[in-house]
Design a protein around this nucleic acid. Structure first.
Lengths: 224, 224
DNA sequence: ATATGACCAATATTGTTAATTTGGTCATAT
DNA sequence: ATATGACCAAATTAACAATATTGGTCATAT
């Protein structure tokens, strides 16, 4: 929420909700501020009481979607009784990713959705470039003893990125008849990762525990 | 080689060689038949003594590159003394893929290279769509006892496609500083696949043997 | 036979202007 | 205070003709 702007948080969320749907469907370029206002049932001017510009709105949306994606992952994680092995945890990452059309578009920088935004000089993605979330995740899981230490952290995290990218992108170019059913595919990936990366003495709850802790710290920081 | 056309195979190969370089660099649209002729040191008319059309030339090039890629893989396979585990074999597949800019472009349907060709109604890729080479490869390796049977063939082959796709595509969008050095990455992937897919009792030569046999059969069919 | 390159119809590009759309503002209303 | 929507400059798109390029052919030369 932008404290400098209107404090009507409920409406701000509705704007973002509507923007998410429109942009996921029509893309950044083809979705106008007026479209968003009309669909949200408010005037165009009201949009600018919440956001400085179309880009500011869009970037708030990117952040919102990332947060929603993370929350959804947490939710799947807590609901899953198969334990906190890296295979299962990563499987749920992919599941959450697939569930969100917007996140998949973000992840592969889909130009049909991101439109001309991706070409902007100092956009969200370029600013984010320094930060490697996946690397940090893998490092933490190694420290927690949930991933073997005998394969380089950077290699593992990049392999995970490769899989996620491939998962989302290949659907466009490969004959659907040759793509396995999602459930079976994700289970297979989890199995492969567990066999390769889960140490024999892994504590299957340690991973989840670290994530929980990380989340509550993040939550606490947010409430300031 | 097109038997209906000129039988000057040497020149036909030079045409394709030149076309490969030009198209890999400038793309299908920006490379004209005259460009190819000039660079090959022959007249434009001579091109049409070998190929019916620009598209026919281009498709011959696609096939040539696929064959060259396969040959290169074979070569790496024979030269590698680490044995024929699935990890090592697949690692060499990725290595051969990375070495050929044209093959990488084909694999991800890079529109900067393939240009307007990919949008043509009945192009090479669409015709090829039925055939799933990776699936056949995995199936054969399972039959040879080099890949476990306890994970679905389709799942394994698709995971391999995902990795290959990710390997090639992620270089464009991820901060290079976060991408591991190629050698380490490929070694890591090989290690992961071996741990997950190589059966305890695998005969590390059986895989190579099947490939050799397959190749000589294909070679024999070609010479007809 | 084999190879060339001038030639052509068809397609693509460019330059230009006119028309439309869009992000953002602000006087006015509530 | 809060919200609206008419309004505007800037940017995008549409329309169109003029120009250039390109795939492919073929009469001619070697």
């Amino acid at each position: 929420m932008n404290p400098e702007k209107s404090s009507n948080d409920e409406r701000e969320q509705r704007i973002l909700e509507v923007a998410s749907e429109l942009i996921a469907h029509y893309g950044y370029d083809k979705t106008t501020v007026s479209d968003i206002a009309r669909e949200a049932g408010i005037s165009k001017g009201a949009i600018y009481l919440h956001f400085d510009s179309k880009d500011a709105l869009f970037e708030a949306l990117l952040i919102r979607e990332m947060e929603a994606y993370t929350m959804r992952w947490m939710q799947l994680l807590e609901a899953d009784e198969r334990g906190g092995t890296i295979g299962v945890m990563y499987r749920l990452i992919l599941q959450a990713l697939q569930e969100s059309p917007f996140m998949t578009a973000m992840f592969i920088r889909d130009s049909r959705v991101m439109g001309s935004y991706i070409r902007k000089p100092n956009n969200f993605f370029r600013r984010q470039e320094e930060h490697d979330g996946r690397f940090i995740f893998v490092k933490m899981m190694q420290n927690a003893g949930v991933i073997t230490e005998d394969i380089d952290t950077r290699v593992i995290s990049h392999v995970m990125d490769m899989l996620a990218f491939g998962l989302v992108s290949m659907r466009d170019i490969k004959n659907p008849a040759h793509i396995p059913e999602t459930e079976a595919l994700l289970t297979g990936i989890a199995e492969i990762l567990d066999r390769a990366l889960t140490p024999p003495d892994a504590d299957s709850e340690a991973g989840k525990q670290v994530i929980r802790q990380l989340m509550s710290t993040a939550q606490a920081q947010m409430n300031e």
